[in-house]
Amino acid sequence: MTRVRSAVGMEGGGGLAGYLDDLLDERAPREAMPAPEGSGQRLEALVVEAGGVGFALPQAAVEAVLPAPTRLARPPRGAPAWLLGRLVRGGARRPVADLAAALLPRGRAGAGPRPWLVALAGRWVLACDRVGDPVALGRSEVRWRRPGERRPWLAGVASAPPALVVNPTRLAAWLDAAAGCGTEDA
């Protein structure tokens, strides 16, 4: 794929068409942006707690917060233990992940039940112990990380309030991969 790097000086020609096609590609995933240099921008996030650890979920990625029902549709046979089951919501059966058990090292997650669910935009629903108030995380209060191989979902670490800042797109991809097959909507 050839891409025009800059928009300057692209009068006519096939380069412009390619540039426009790329920019307007509906299927392209939204990639992580480099944090803006020295800007005072804030990230609106919902801080939830699971296994004693705070997780900051970008508000824009949160579809809904709801109390966990007593029963969830059974997870598929052979699914990892952190896959609690499936929540029937809006006609779809959406996989529910125990946030702490899925993301924290073994032994750190603590015992459930996790009484609150956070439905992310998309497919995944996260089970947690507590849902806090939304906060605006200052850029300087977060140590941003490059996406790593081990915890690709970890976008950074916030200091006030202390929380792991989650990249929801990469979290969903990571959960999809870790859950293996069988979590598709029935």
């Binding site: 007593t70 997870p75 089951g85 459930g112």
Partner: peptide, 20 residues
């Protein structure tokens, strides 16, 4: 058939309800 409980198996004896 209705799915089984996944979180509350310990207290299955008596019907429970969950309230927010």
């Amino acid at each position: 058939e209705p799915a089984r409980e996944v979180q509350d198996e310990a207290r299955a004896e008596e019907p429970t309800s969950r309230w927010v």
